[in-house]
Nucleic acid binder design. Structure first.
Lengths: 328, 328
DNA sequence: TTGAAAGCGCTAACAG
DNA sequence: CTGTTAGCGCTTTCAA
């Protein structure tokens, strides 16, 4: 691999000038041309590692997410990637698998590799960001908020829960159950609170707790909870799913029992990109996953650029997409 | 951040000794202890950038895939990640979006960042690996084979196509159509060939070409092709989908027209992780995505470790999962 | 076994 | 505007 010294020699200038040409500092036109020529000839690519070592930074950011196989997070990743690569940054995708230890390991790597910042959807409320924050690196929280004083991009989870319940209510359903993610994850708790608020407002007498189930944010979690709900002496006539995967699990169980929506109403918080269901049968609260990714990346890049304003949290809007079919 | 000099000073040894301790070279026990102590106290983390610059390598590999939003590739990524992180490597996920230019840009970054190797599912048969191969870095092709003399991990695509068609035939379907990805992508062509072989063997008189459609490897591609097939004067009674997303699109269209499988038979090459369909209604040829990822990562790591045997291509087996329901 | 010292390729003062 | 020079933090001969 050619270095700036090779280029400098061929172009008849100093290495510093070559560096300047590649970093946009003012250099006379003829030298710029000479350097570009020489670089071309030698197929010179600046060595980012050396640059990193010298500048103590690198054009790489880490995106830490709990589940790379969840389309919600890959859509978000897509947004981060697009915004970052527009700015010349690359993104290292780190899958924490919802484990705090794996997450910590990735954050250590981010530091050791001089990455310039981190976007993280925390695994848990016990996630420890102190070590990375101690290095002074900017960190932006996405999806889930944290107890740290850092930038965040979230959505209105309570509203999502409320909208989902309301959508089913408007379609004529009454015993609307809820299957959510782990209660200790704030987004899950908020969504449940939204559903609960909608239900108690509409039917003060309803025993809402009997209709709530908390599972993992996975297909299997949705399946189990749905089975439990159907086994109740008074089963629900509809259900709000706390995320996309839970929704898939719930719908699978309903389909297996010939209760395919709209026979039992279903509202899902999150999109179902690969569902084979007729899209009109299910109410979907679309979450701004891609948009969150883009926003988080932009905020992070601003911080990397030196922005020192106080931390802010941006709340993105959701978009409800009601089922076109009413109660069967 | 503490450096090896700080650690050396505190431990009363030379920086070289600190380096040796962290790299496993023989150092007397007492010095090892002193160094570990000092490192602990200073919360020392070796600076990977400096290490990289010195050694001309880094414990990072790039995984370049055409579509990060396709669960097939994320499953593969998962496999790569697991195998790589076991070996202390991190993975940079690069989404080429099926564009050769984006792909080339990522390969350039891989070089500039001194990454030690690349696993790539090429965007296209025109993908240019010459620049990266010229640097001497190991490259492993996954999913799709290439014209280069490099390691590869693929599956038996022809067999997949054949199995899918056979599964439908066994279930009693006869006019079995095919919707595949772009014909110029070898995996797509092979799968089509497998289907074609099965069909002509079973029904020599059938005009198979009338029943074949080539689309993009996306949901929309599957939708359009399915609509075309249904518009034929003699529409098919079953269809083989060339990948998971095409399958989703095809099933969506069938569902909208009240032809949900098994009314029209469907066999999908690739898993449908988030389908809400009763799993027994569709024949699925499960592809070893995760396994491919793990295998590719292991091969790459061996090459990085200095393996210089001739390039080999590993072909992984598929697993067919027939629909439990026969023709309606 | 250990230390001294050179240098990986680049950038950023500092002079000129 | 341009060149000289001193490192960034680490590894790795080469001597001791």
């Amino acid at each position: 691999m050619a270095t700036i010294y090779d280029v400098a020699a061929l172009a008849g200038v100093s290495p510093a000038t070559v560096s300047r040409v590649f970093n946009g500092t003012r250099v006379s036109d003829d030298k710029v041309a000479a350097v570009r020529d020489a670089a071309e000839k030698l197929r010179f690519t600046p060595n980012r590692t050396a640059r990193s070592l010298r500048t103590q930074s690198s054009e790489v950011i880490a995106l830490v997410i709990p589940d790379i196989e969840n389309p919600y997070f890959t859509e978000m990743a897509r947004g981060v990637e697009d915004a970052a690569s527009d700015a010349g940054y690359s993104v290292v995708l780190c899958n924490s698998d919802s484990q705090v230890e794996k997450e910590a390991a990735y954050l250590r790597i981010a530091v050791a590799e001089h990455m310039s910042g981190v976007i993280i959807a925390t695994a848990d409320e016990s996630s420890d960001l102190d070590p990375i924050l101690a290095t002074g690196r900017p960190v932006v929280a996405v999806d889930r908020s944290t107890a740290y004083d850092i930038d965040g991009v979230v959505m209105d989870n309570r509203d999502a829960g409320r909208s989902a319940a309301q959508g089913l209510w408007d379609a004529g359903y009454r015993r609307i159950a809820y299957i959510g993610g782990p209660e200790h994850i704030d987004t899950a708790a908020e969504r449940a609170a939204g559903w609960r608020a909608a239900m108690t407002a509409a039917q003060p007498d309803l025993d809402v707790d009997a209709l709530a189930r908390f599972a993992s944010f996975r297909v299997e979690g949705g399946r189990e909870a749905m089975q439990q709900l159907l086994a109740l002496s008074e089963p629900p006539d509809a259900v709000v799913a706390g995320n996309n995967l839970i929704g898939v699990g719930a719908i699978q169980v309903l389909t297996e029992r010939d209760l395919t929506p709209p026979r039992v109403g279903v509202a899902v918080i999150g999109s179902l990109p690969f569902t084979t269901l007729s899209p009109s049968a299910v109410t979907v609260v679309r979450l701004p996953a891609r948009h969150m990714g883009v926003t988080a990346a932009r905020m992070l890049l601003e911080r990397i650029g030196g922005d020192t304003r106080p931390a802010r949290t941006v709340t993105l809007r959701n978009e409800i997409q009601p089922a076109r079919t009413a109660r069967a």
